[in-house]
Simulated scan of single mutants.
Amino acid sequence: MKYWITVASKDHIARGVAGGFMQANHGKQAALKRMHTGDWVLFYSPKQTMNGTEPCQAFTAIGQVADEEIYQHKMSDDFIPWRRNIGFYQNTETPVAPLVDKLDFITNKKSWGYPFRFGFLEIPEHDFERIKAKMITGKLITLNK
């Protein structure tokens, strides 16, 4: 089992939670291929909306990869992103700032946002568990709608 973080605006993550899916790195397939059934995913939102400037800087969703399927979904004639099915859990939005000093995957605490710039990253289990303990408040809420 592996533990991942994907980065997207809060509004985009909310669409994924509602639909039981995730996209990564603007709909590219490569990151999704690295994941397997049962892997955990944290969703980090630097901003409230994709084109907005209002910060969020929080983990806004948490879930597990539901199956091995990677598929495309036509959103418009020129945008057909790749997706994976995710089982999302009820959670509390969790600000990253209070956790920075306790997370090993953030090596430079002064430039804590740097690891998130890549849009998708694997993290150690102990860091994942620290974040998960702050987030999960209930049961599975969506699974492959």
Rank of each mutant, 00 (worst) to 15 (best):
T6E: 06
A8N: 06
D11I: 13
H12K: 07
G16N: 08
V17A: 11
V17W: 11
V17Q: 11
A18L: 14
A18G: 15
G19F: 09
G20P: 06
G20D: 05
Q23L: 11
A24I: 11
N25R: 12
N25Q: 13
H26D: 12
H26L: 10
G27Q: 09
Q29P: 15
Q29R: 13
A30K: 12
A30W: 15
A31L: 10
A31V: 07
L32T: 15
L32V: 12
T37Q: 14
G38W: 09
G38L: 10
D39V: 09
W40H: 13
V41C: 09
Y44I: 00
P46D: 08
P46M: 10
T49S: 08
T49G: 14
T49N: 15
N51Q: 15
P55W: 11
C56R: 06
C56G: 05
Q57Y: 07
F59R: 05
T60N: 07
I62V: 07
I62G: 00
G63A: 07
Q64R: 08
Q64V: 08
Q64T: 13
A66Q: 06
D67P: 06
E68S: 07
E69K: 11
I70T: 04
K74E: 12
M75T: 12
D77R: 04
D77G: 04
I80S: 03
I80Y: 04
I80C: 09
P81E: 01
P81Y: 01
W82L: 01
R83V: 04
R83P: 02
R84W: 05
N85S: 15
G87T: 12
G87P: 03
Y89M: 02
Y89H: 03
T92P: 11
T92V: 14
T92L: 14
E93H: 13
T94L: 05
T94F: 05
P95E: 03
A97L: 14
P98F: 05
D101Y: 02
D101M: 11
D101G: 06
F105G: 02
T107F: 14
T107M: 10
N108Q: 09
K110C: 09
Y114P: 05
P115Q: 03
P115I: 01
F116Q: 01
R117M: 04
R117G: 02
G119D: 01
F120K: 01
L121D: 05
L121G: 05
L121S: 07
E122V: 06
I123G: 00
I123F: 03
P124D: 04
E125A: 07
H126R: 05
D127P: 05
F128D: 00
R130G: 01
I131R: 01
I131C: 00
K132S: 04
K134Q: 09
I136E: 03
I136S: 03
K139D: 08
I141W: 00
I141P: 00
T142V: 07
L143D: 04
L143I: 10
N144G: 08
